[in-house]
Simulated assay, not measured.
Amino acid sequence: MNNITRTEKRGFLLLAIVFALSYFFAFTNMDFFEHGFIVEDGPVEYGTAVMLFCTSILSIVYLIKYHKNKSLTWKFGLVMFAILFFFAAGEEISWGQRIFDIQTGEYFMEHNRQKEMNLHNLEVGGKKLNKIIFSQLLTLVIVVYLLIVPVLYRKKKWAKNLLDKFAVPVVYWHHTIAFIVCTLLVLIIPHHRKWEVYELDFSLIFFLIFLNPFNKEIYSKS
């Protein structure tokens, strides 16, 4: 595990603190866990949004710092990552609706399960977008990214060239192990909204992946 940087160690320590607090509140004060810890506009939700936003900013920093002599596909990849994580951060806090006291529009009042201005809680034709796109599809993408992509990158030259071409960070195995451990730990929490904690863990680990990918040379001047 000598590939773990000092910053990553601090990140994993933060993960441990999140779980320690989650377990403590969930098993000793469920009321606070639900209404003070994982509540909308609570520390877990804001923490998730902040980490997603930081990954978006990090992508922009890489783009600005290393764009010279880089291909259009490399630049395109980082722009897409910046947009993706910014969008995810905005969705997490309903684009600041409650922060700035913005009234929900008519369409979202009618089609959003929580009456908020976000896409992941929309119901279209009786189908929940959160379940189809943000749960099932996202879960599949994460599994492929964490388990299959690292093997292909290390074994197949075409995969390595493709991923590097689009500036896709490849995980170290300690990132994959962290995801698996976090998943198992979250399952123990006795509350149906325990996945809010998982989202925070998810966002933090992804930030660490972008900070220290296996193919870190893609985020350099070479």
Rank of each mutant, 00 (worst) to 15 (best):
I4G: 01
R6N: 14
T7D: 11
K9V: 01
F12T: 07
I17A: 13
F19I: 11
F19P: 08
F19N: 11
L21Q: 02
A26M: 03
N29S: 02
M30D: 12
F32W: 12
G36E: 04
F37M: 02
E40F: 13
P43A: 06
G47K: 12
T48M: 05
T48I: 10
C54A: 08
T55P: 00
I57A: 10
I60K: 06
L63Q: 13
L63V: 07
K68S: 02
F76K: 08
G77R: 05
M80D: 07
A82K: 12
F85W: 07
F87Y: 15
A88W: 08
S94P: 09
S94Y: 06
I102N: 08
I102P: 05
G105I: 06
M109V: 04
E116T: 11
E116M: 03
M117Y: 07
N118E: 02
L119S: 14
K127P: 00
K131Q: 15
K131F: 08
L137I: 10
L140M: 04
I142Q: 07
V143W: 11
P150M: 10
L152I: 11
L152H: 02
R154K: 14
R154V: 01
K155S: 10
K160S: 08
L162D: 10
D164H: 04
V171H: 13
T176S: 12
T176K: 01
I177F: 12
C182E: 01
L184E: 06
V186H: 00
H192N: 04
R193G: 06
L200K: 10
D201I: 08
L204Y: 00
L204A: 02
F207T: 04
I209K: 03
L211E: 00
E217S: 05
Y219R: 02
